[in-house]
Amino acid sequence: MAEFQWPWQYNFPPFFTIQPNKDTQAKQLEAWCLLVLSYCRHRRQYSLDVTDAQDSPLFHNKKIDRKLPLDAVYTVLEELRKKGNIEWTDPKKRNRCLIMWRTPEEWGKIIYQWVTSNGMNNTVCTTYELVNGDDTTSQEFHGMESWLLTRALQTLQLERKAELMGSEGVKFF
């Protein structure tokens, strides 16, 4: 796996203090959201444990000795939730969340595009071969967790581009 490319903000100390100026804060949070998503995407990470994440390089830059405080981590994650990129698995405690660096709709489109380009329309395949099969190793959705895949396929079903057959199979149109 290639080295993750940190954005310039990551080495800018004020990035780790939530800015009181609203305009500045908006830009700062935008940068944080992008960083969290691209970081998870780079690591193919589909969920996030808040306590672990706070100590991970994502929120803790050891080089400049700055760490995003916990309340700021929540500010960033809430911002992501508003955008539909994360979902709390425990909304009350907010310890763990699901990460969608692409929304289910976007995933659906990507999968459907791959299906079409491989001439698999009007065929049935299992969800396992779709995300774990040899044909999809080069695809972004390879190794996708099943909860997200199901949601992505559901969006396609709404558009009548696919039909779920039980929880294990799917037919594309």
């Binding site: 954005p7 310039w8 903000q9 800018f12 100390p13 004020p14 800015q19 100026n21 305009d23 500045t24 830009k27 700062q28 935008e30 940068a31 992008l34």
Partner: peptide, 15 residues
Amino acid sequence: LRFYPNLFMTKPVIE
């Protein structure tokens, strides 16, 4: 409390 030039506003979010 240390103050920096506001790069958030002057530099693009993605370089």
